[in-house]
């Protein structure tokens, strides 16, 4: 053994110091250039004209309103899309029904369509000259250029996130667990809450995080349906653009920093939840050495 250990074996692919260093360096440089640097610039510019101006921009009623509108939109759109995603994933993976494959494709449409197309489509459906335009106007229901339009457009764009995270996982898990629970006498709801949900919660949470980030950051679709009314239908991304076009660079960066902060908070929440979940259920986080009784 000791003799063979001394023989210098040719390195495996990628297993030599030079290659490793280059690979790591490339990743670090790219990350720094494309992800860290722009974020740092946002922070830098936001405070470039002093803390006072930053605070003033944030405290400006239009900005506050934009933040609130964005948060409210997320609070409505994300839970609905989560419920939709879970239901869609459940239906597609646990049941056979005609049109199952078609549904799978349809769910993905928002991924492949430009958000602006979605916005325009909503104009055609709910706008004054649109399909339901007159009906809605008669009933005095305002969808476009108001919160419902913004929520609808955001939901359209983010509809696939949760479902896409869940479908592969639930497909891999199969139906055995649900069948076992039902054969033991559990009701449908009980099965869902005590068996299905605990086994998909991390994937679901990840979908929620992505969905939330996208809802808060959505620009294209919302810009079409919201009408960009300052202090009324301006979401945070729209507000940033507006400030930028008004040559209020520091202001737009300040608002952008808020949006970035919201994203960071979302990510932090995800990590924290994961940690907590992992601590409570050690088996799910770290596989422990398995006893083998075949050894005898």
């Amino acid at each position: 053994m000791s003799a063979t250990a001394k023989i210098k074996r040719p390195p495996r692919v990628g297993d030599n110091p030079l290659f490793r260093t280059i690979l790591i360096a490339v990743v670090l440089v790219v990350t720094a250039l494309f992800i860290v640097a722009p974020l740092a610039v946002i922070g830098f510019h936001a405070f470039s004209q002093g803390w006072q101006l930053y605070a003033a921009t944030i405290a400006h009623p239009d900005t506050v309103h934009a933040i609130m509108l964005t948060v409210v939109t997320a609070l409505i759109a994300v839970p609905i899309n989560t419920a939709f995603g879970v239901a869609a994933a459940w239906a597609i993976t646990k049941f056979d029904f005609p049109g199952r494959r078609l549904l799978l494709v349809v769910i993905e449409i928002p991924f492949s369509i430009s958000p602006i197309v979605a916005g325009v489509a909503y104009l055609f459906v709910y706008g004054l000259q649109g399909l339901f335009g007159e009906m809605l106007a008669d009933a005095d229901i305002k969808i476009l250029f108001a919160l419902p339009g913004i929520v609808l457009a955001s939901m359209f764009v983010t509809a696939p996130f949760v479902a896409r995270e869940l479908i592969p996982l639930m497909q891999a898990q199969g139906r055995d667990l649900e069948e076992a629970a039902t054969s033991l006498g559990a009701s449908g709801w009980r099965t869902f809450f005590s068996v299905t949900l605990p086994n998909i919660r991390w994937a679901m949470l990840y979908g929620v995080v992505l969905c939330n980030a996208r809802v808060m950051g959505e620009f294209g679709a919302v810009s079409v349906v919201s009408g960009n009314i300052r202090g009324q239908t301006n979401t945070l991304p729209l507000h940033i653009e507006l400030l930028y076009h008004d040559y209020q660079t520091a202001g737009s960066f300040a608002a952008a920093s808020i949006l970035a902060l919201l994203a960071v908070v979302t990510l932090a929440a995800k990590v924290a939840l994961e940690r907590r979940g992992a601590g409570r259920r050690p088996a799910l986080a770290a596989p422990v050495a398995v006893l083998t009784e075949n050894a005898k």
Binding site: A180, L184, G185, P198, N199
Partner: peptide, 24 residues
């Protein structure tokens, strides 16, 4: 019903798995 691939609930302990049917 006993499944070929056991279908034990991975997020429950052995005790909780066995108790599941009685709890529901």
């Amino acid at each position: 019903f006993v499944f070929q691939h056991y279908a034990l609930f991975p997020h429950m302990t052995v005790d909780e798995n066995i108790a599941f049917g009685m709890k529901v």
